[in-house]
Amino acid sequence: MSGVSLKNLYEEMLLLRRFDKLSMRLKMKDLIYSGYHPTEGQEAVAVGFCGALRDDDVLLSTHRPHIHAVAGGCTMEAVLTEMMGRTTGCSGGLGGGMQYVDPEHNFYCGSVVGSNLPIATGVAMAMKQQGSDRVCMCMFGDGASNTGSFHEALNLAAIWKLPVIFVCENNGFAEAMPVEEFVACKRISSRSRAYDLEEISIDGNDVEACRATADDLIERTRKGEGPFLVEAVTYRIRGHYVGDPEKTYRTKDEVAEKKQEEPLVRARERLLEQGTDAAELDALEGPIKERLDALSEWAVEQPFPTLEQAIDNVYIPLTEGEVACR
């Protein structure tokens, strides 16, 4: 597992869990404006997969992108202040929490479900044609696996043998639609059979399994064995957005039960079994809290974009001196 210890992975997940909590607090204070999509319970996929990429690989994410972004190399400063609409954000505060790009860190996300899969094929096609061993990783959810874009992209990637890893983060729900009712197959990974790809489904709450699978698929993709589709089965502990009417689609008991098997609980149990001291794990909280407190204090001081900045790059003007928003 590329020399990363379970404790390291646990610490990274803990950071993302607390980052999500901080974001939710900021959402409640109306300092994040768009709908906030919480990530609690999905940290193993983010750390395991997005954290396994090389700096020059490309990561495409979804409408629930913030922990993918941070695990994939974007700074927490840029991700948080993007959600808060400040100029220090990935997209200068013009995108918000669901669509932003960070080309320096090869990170791109968007808020139309399923759209990133076709884009991933283009990224991967260029990588292949440019003769590099870079890979493209495309995160998406169970909901996206029902879009036409999913099937068009899988087919294209498969016929052209592109260096792309499609990671289906199956968190059990597409908004309020439970996967059992709205996806026609038991395992989303079985859809890979239609494209003559391996069928890979793993426990998405097991961070070691996620990282080991990611390392393996990335290595194989670099060798030209791609594309791959992998399903990581996890669970969305919070609502689709903060304050969604959860009782319309699940019970509190169900959530309580699932909380027993979420990634941090699982990793902690395993670490304790392996002899790690509980106090040592608890001690990780302090520095994370300090870091996030400082981040939050800094973030609220950052400026908002001006109208001029907002409309300055609509398109590249055809002639000198022409305004960019025509």
Partner: peptide, 8 residues
């Protein structure tokens, strides 16, 4: 999408 990704 392939156009968008490759242009990128």
């Amino acid at each position: 999408g392939c156009g968008v990704g490759s242009a990128l």
